[in-house]
Write a protein that binds this DNA or RNA. Structure first.
Lengths: 155, 155
DNA sequence: GCAATCCGTACCATTCGGGTCCTGATTTTT
DNA sequence: AAAAATCAGGACCCGAATGGTACGGATTGC
């Protein structure tokens, strides 16, 4: 379904909520869970992962919590996806990886996916979390002004 | 991982092989399986799905088989993905679908994914199966000429 | 020193994709 | 006309990976 994991979705929600904290104030994981309506352990897991990727910073100890490492406008969607779901690649065959499939010698699409993956990354890197957080519309990166709104090209 | 299913990958391989048939000649599912090195039941399943989507046409009976309904150059990647994996949507929340999640009233990203999905579809619809079948390089839709080849934007 | 909080890891369950098989419908060939 | 070959459609089962949980440890503030 070309769909990213729920955790990534949660991450965006949590990050959006996290931006509302004033200046350097930190928010606790249970607090964020209550604010977003998500499960407390799940939120904690997401925050840990995001912290590991350097997108949020955690402060330990009493009166600890999390805060954004960067403003959301400087946080491309690609980084969040890569942090939660891993590297962005549509297929397992990336960079002509050898031995990934047994029919690689007669595979007609060897290495052909790489430009596609690159196009996807380029598209996604032009979208910041701030665009998803409700501020304004998505900024069109370099693409033309979206023609018809949200019509399925094929369905 | 933002990765599409193996079946879609197989579909592209099978379609690429199917284009090599001369004029109106049909190829059998077992024959395509042998030519691509994939499992025979799997190829049959993929072909049935593609036939249902109108991308290939099946002829029954002895000396039957499959042939392309269109040249690959006129077959955007979006259609193949939609045929195998279903509609292209990164999250379950599409078009403000109500009732999909229980926290929709306080969700900060309500409806914000739609433009993202649209951007993905626009990127993918600019790529045809012919571009993946080995003919030439991927045509850059409107984006700038791919800078460095296949570097991970975020990893 | 105690409490609160983050950190890391390990663990289990459910879901979904991947793959196989069977039966039926249709067409060609003998 | 019978038989063989092939597509069509569905049911089914297994495995992997996501999603969610739990526990012990480290760190900081009161």
């Amino acid at each position: 379904m070309l769909r990213l994991s729920k955790l990534t979705d949660y991450a965006v929600v949590v990050l959006a909520r996290l931006e509302e904290a004033e200046d350097g104030r930190v928010l606790t994981a249970p607090g964020l869970a209550a604010a977003t309506g998500l499960g407390e352990p799940t939120v904690a897991k997401v925050l840990k992962t995001l912290s590991h990727a350097g997108l949020v910073e955690g402060r330990r100890g009493a009166s600890g919590g999390y805060r954004l490492a960067r403003p959301l406008a400087a946080m491309p969607l690609t980084e969040v996806i890569a942090a939660i779901d891993g590297p962005i690649a549509l297929t397992a065959c990336v960079d002509n990886a050898a031995g990934c499939c047994e029919t690689e010698d007669r595979c007609a699409v060897r290495g052909r996916w790489d430009p596609v993956n690159d196009a996807i990354r380029r598209t996604l890197s032009g979208i910041s979390i701030a665009d998803l957080a409700g501020a304004s519309a998505v900024m069109p990166p370099h693409a033309a002004g979206a023609r018809r709104p949200a019509t399925f090209a094929a369905e």
